[in-house]
Design a protein around this nucleic acid. Sequence first.
DNA 1: CGCATCCTTGACTCCCCTCAACAGCTGTGG
DNA 2: CCACAGCTGTTGAGGGGAGTCAAGGATGCG
Lengths: 239, 239
Amino acid sequence: MMAEILTRKLKHGGFLAEDDCDRLTAVTKEAYYLGPRTDVIRQGESPDAVRLVIEGIACRYKLMPDGRRAIVALLLPGDFCDLHISILKRMDHSIGTLTQCKIVDIPRSTVDDLLENYPRIQRSLWWATLVDEAILREWLVNMGKRRSDRQMAHLLCEMHFRLKAVGLSLGSMLPLTQEELADILGISHVHAQRVMASLRDAGLVSLQGRRIVVTDFKRMIEFSEFDPDYLHLDEGSTS
Amino acid sequence: MMAEILTRKLKHGGFLAEDDCDRLTAVTKEAYYLGPRTDVIRQGESPDAVRLVIEGIACRYKLMPDGRRAIVALLLPGDFCDLHISILKRMDHSIGTLTQCKIVDIPRSTVDDLLENYPRIQRSLWWATLVDEAILREWLVNMGKRRSDRQMAHLLCEMHFRLKAVGLSLGSMLPLTQEELADILGISHVHAQRVMASLRDAGLVSLQGRRIVVTDFKRMIEFSEFDPDYLHLDEGSTS
DNA sequence: CGCATCCTTGACTCCCCTCAACAGCTGTGG
DNA sequence: CCACAGCTGTTGAGGGGAGTCAAGGATGCG
């Protein structure tokens, strides 16, 4: 039931046909839960299965020699953890859950089969990794060129669109701690807190305990100069 | 002669056989030159050929609404400009030369043929885009977590390794202006200049006019905490 | 030579970091 | 029931890295 998250996402690529979807959902049967702040894969490992996030939020991260953590990608429902592994020998970064997550393991052999024998699925998976790359580029722009309040707003906009693309919403998610937000944006958690407070004071978001709700989405988009173009979400079904 | 740059790079992926190389070099015959600071592809376009850099340095960049430029990737000899285009409909960023460049156009149909009928070449191209993604992640870490002097040093180390992987060297390249370096690192050109001066004073590089020469590579690596792991250059031939 | 581009330097400002302390919440155990 | 620890969020003070503005020096090119 829930595992159709994957097809829901990949449909945006515009390559999938109906039987491809069936095949994909058939592959994503057995799911299991992982607690928050749990490592899924660690740097240097070569996992033997591809993991797919069904529920919750995970992240790619790297640790600096002094222990600081840089989060370089968010993995939302429908995102793959490590499609690479049949190509690159070792992980050059780690993956861990932020919230509790529901995960599906897909054996490497199954993935290889999908890639070789189902060209539309292959193109869809290509599409997904290319979008991941586009997101990375935008994060780089975000970090290099925007002040941290705009940056934070931009991140929230991105999450809104990415979640909407799989039928979810920001309000229902995102119990991210401010330290996690800070590690995403490359700022200190103290400053992250001040930024959130300023967004609240500006009337852009409201904070209900640990939960973030965007109250004025239109101004949020203006404020962060957000352009959803890079998410490439308009080819397939409803954007 | 020079077009074997591509095979030289892709061999690091560890998938190519001898006849694959022949096929690839056969495809990269007709090259042409582009002057410095020339756009190759602009955001929003859907080019009909894949472009490959043979000589010189190009970059992926995005422009902010206020005109500032963020460089999100460097394209060195052997790198593709837009392998995506058969998957993603429009470019979400622009590509332009920095120095003078020698470029090869490969028709989209040729690329599709290579991808469909030559699985080892297909995996090699996958490998190349995954390495590009890994580089993006490292740039993100670099920008988010390192002070700008370390960041600059890290960039120079990366360029050294990437160039060495295709048989080139830093000393023979890199007439990048400090404004370009600044746009890569996400700092102002004034600050980029001060950072270069500090690296010179620390005895790490020497500046001969516009040319940067790394004088103490070992200390440079320590200084920037550089770990070439993410470049995935050790699978195939000589690293 | 004159113009353009790039490098260099100084002064001032400010965004953001670090250190530090405190408040609020939750779970655990006495 | 309260005490306590542990984590997250909140706030303040002080400092430094980096931005901006501005002007002067190099260098190269037509």
